[in-house]
Amino acid sequence: MDLDDIDHRILRVLQKQGRMSNAELSEQVHLSASACHRRVQRLESEGIIRGYVALLDARRMGMPTTVFVEITLSAQADEVLEAFEKAVSRIPDVLECHLMAGSADYILKVVAEDTEDFARIHRQHLTRLPGVAQMQSSFALRTVFKTTALPV
């Protein structure tokens, strides 16, 4: 799908404030309300806009600890990868899982209440993942920068 300057403006605004009304959005992107509404519907139907979410503050939700876990699997066969991916997707504390090129096969982003809670997650979930040969965890000391907005 070809995106023009107006589409980019709409996407930039919605990434920062997704709950605004169509009237507010159309005013910010300098477009009539009906034309703006049609464009947003097109962006949604084309899958450019996948959905709308509320971004929660992990610290205020009692999960201030972020841990990045590097996973190396015992094999690279499709069935091993599929079994791992299916199992890891069911762990509620895992926010992200990325298949990697490099020293680790996967990197997980895990949230926890504290180190004891991470020890529980590790013991109850991570150690039981299929096909894992090696695991290394790194605790984030502080989040310097974080965004969900793509550069458009």
Results as ranks from 00 to 15, higher is better:
L11T: 09
S21K: 03
A23E: 11
S21A: 03
A35K: 02
E46D: 15
S32D: 04
L31A: 14
R12L: 03
M20L: 08
R12V: 05
G47I: 07
G18S: 03
C36T: 09
G47L: 06
Q28T: 09
S34M: 09
V29I: 01
Y52S: 01
L56N: 11
S32L: 04
R9E: 12
S34D: 07
S21M: 03
R42E: 11
V40D: 12
I49Y: 08
E27W: 13
E24A: 08
L25R: 06
V13T: 12
I48K: 06
Q41S: 11
G18M: 03
E24V: 08
N22H: 08
A35F: 04
V13Q: 09
R39C: 07
I48V: 13
L25D: 07
L56R: 12
I49T: 11
G51M: 13
G18E: 02
I10S: 00
E24T: 08
I49N: 07
L3F: 02
L56M: 13
K16N: 15
D7T: 13
L31I: 15
H37M: 07
Q15H: 13
M20E: 06
I10Y: 01
E27Y: 13
R19D: 15
G18I: 04
A33L: 14
S21C: 02
R42I: 10
R39P: 03
D57P: 00
E44K: 05
A54Q: 09
G47S: 04
L55M: 14
V53E: 12
R60G: 05
A35S: 02
